[in-house]
Amino acid sequence: MNNSTQSQPAAIAAHLSNVSRTTVIELEHLSVRIGQKPVLTDINLKLKAGEVTALLGPNGAGKSTLLKSLCQEIELEAGRINIHQQPLTQWDRQNLAKSLAVLPQHASLTFPFQVHQVVEMGLYPLTLSQQQGEQLIDSQLEQVALSHLKYRSYPTLSGGEKQRVQLARVLTQLAQSDKPPILLLDEPTSALDLAQQHRVLKLVKSLAHEQNYAVVVVLHDLNQASRYADRLVILQQGEVVSDGPPHEALTPATIRQVWQYDPIVVNEPGQLTPLLF
């Protein structure tokens, strides 16, 4: 994780050789239509545990739709999705919730719950004694560095703190997973300031690398994506146009093709992926 002492490609290589990467999500010939408009066309992807996969693409490319189809919020036109080798539609809802969780973009609560009560909602699909539950809540709050706000009222928190509370809730939900947990995030950094953005992404990356999570994240910032993701999947008009590790998937040529924008490329010493503006 320590990018300052270890160069990024070396870190990735070391990581990839250490982890046996099982496929946790399979998309086969996935097509989605919203009204008459095809939004995703024949998507084939295998997503693995222990990796952060970033979904990139311009607005309307189908990133969020792809994420939504993974959490059954959208009906498929064709194709199938397997989660842990089992078709998504055949999963028992509660069992699925134990190994697949979604971090909402922004969650507002109608009533002023305290922070620990929000995290406690993550216990819903689990079967734990009260004491085990309380321990789990404490440990997850610690993981997102919010133990000191345990009894604070959720609506009084800043955007970044709320996001981390939600992350703690989602991690609580995944705590009992007997398979590599799957974490889906839809633009988790959109409402956060710079420091909070990096904090959340760093945490997410460590979950993948240290606890073998499969993380799928929709991002807009290309530099963030290439810094924190192990794999980039770039979508354009509902199709995958580029897929691979950041330095292969995100080239100036791809950017010109997909975003119709000519980036300024700044090479940073020691980094395989250049900074793009």
Partner: peptide, 20 residues
């Protein structure tokens, strides 16, 4: 009671928690 708490997160979020 627990399900009602989860429902306050929003319907989509409650579904993701395994709630019918």
């Amino acid at each position: 009671a627990k399900a009602l708490n989860a429902l306050l997160l929003g319907e989509a979020e409650a579904r993701h928690l395994g709630l019918d």
